[in-house]
Design a protein around this nucleic acid. Sequence first.
RNA 1: GGGGAGAUGGCCGAGCGGUCAAUGGCAGCAGACUGUAAAUCUGCCGGCGUACGCCUACGGAGGUUCGAAUCCUUCUCUCCCCA
Length: 403
Amino acid sequence: MGFKSIKEQLALISRGAEEILPLKELEVKLGQSIKTNTPLVIKLGCDPSRPDLHIGHGVVLRKLRHFQELGHQAVLVIGDFTAMIGDPSGRNKTRPQLTLEDAKANAESYVDQAEAILDITNLKIVYNSSWLNSMNFSEVIKLASKYTVARMLERDDFTKRYKTEVPISIHEFLYPLAQGMDSVELNADVELGGTDQKFNLLVGRDLQRESGQEPQVIITLPLLEGTDGVEKMSKSYGNHIGLHDAPEDMYGKTLSISDAMIEKYFLLGADADDKTMDDVRKQLSDSSVNPRDVKRRLASELVTLYYDSETAIKAEKHFDQVFIKKDIPDDMDEFQLSEEMQLLDILNETGLVKSKGEGRRMIKQNAVRIDGNPCKDQLMSFKPGCGEAVIKVGKRRFLKVKG
RNA sequence: GGGGAGAUGGCCGAGCGGUCAAUGGCAGCAGACUGUAAAUCUGCCGGCGUACGCCUACGGAGGUUCGAAUCCUUCUCUCCCCA
């Protein structure tokens, strides 16, 4: 099968991308690829230490998918080796060090989730332990000699940590090098990553050059902020929309993003094409259009993307019912009463609240409703034979008690 | 190798023998207002008990004391300066 023209390919490749470095080299590579009818090798590394994927990860996976659609060879590098060592970079605690088995298990789950985006049948999956694990100390030292401390310290987060006297371990300097080795191993033509990966991606170029390879082109993608619109999307911030979130959650969470994020979510999260983006921008700048409606469209497109349009309609209906009409959802967890029980215990045991203390607080704050009426009685209890009641805690926690 | 500083609740950061479950900020949760937007206001924000209260917590382990996050010893870890 032939490739599309350079121009056509670039249009898709650059959609949503932050930087393509150097663009000229990419054009050359694409040209060669067309001429020799050979797909380019597109590398994406993933960290299997955190197995829950969200639409933030989706941004870069989507870009890899674009390359698949253009007929290139996508390679997913599972960083099981690096995960095994345990990268202590990042804000606070040392990361848990995974065993190779854990990393492998997580990797499987990762691939399973990535299937929502990638064409798995044409995906090459490799584990970097298969080459990094066998390097001996002298090889590592030789590798380490190719970079200087000053250059390492150029990296943004190292600079920051160094200045604020936050520890940096020596082995962290080896991370970019290990990642770069992956590029050498694969003879990658292009490597994808978030903007925070820029330094690491560039190291790959240097190492490839040292090994006599043509350096890879790097493509960085913006980091998608989470639903709070401030921090980057991350499960630990609790601001993520998971790829495996239930359709209703995906829809609801999307509607909770701030208006300022709508455009970005369309582009990066929903993979909107140029035409859609124009339309969205037009609507957002039109004061007669309620931004909420644009957001509703976004939510529905996201659900459609990860599920299907029918599910999106259902999610929307659920949302309207629960949050706009403040009605109860069609489906909710049920609790069968076998003996008289305190409301507080029911809440606690079913996980509607984290502790009884939280339950008490919620009740005090009028956050607990029974059949729509705020419950102020902390000692209230349910007796068998009392029939059905719907308990609501906060905005979105429901439970049907059957007695 | 020598000298100095430090480790506090999800994070930052006060406290320096009792009044400390620990000021404050951020994050979070809930309520009001809304479009599950933003902004704003209010309350909550270790666990258990209706509550007086009890238990567990200030890097780990010991100790001094009627009483310790606060003092001493020791261990672990971190940062800075000198070599």
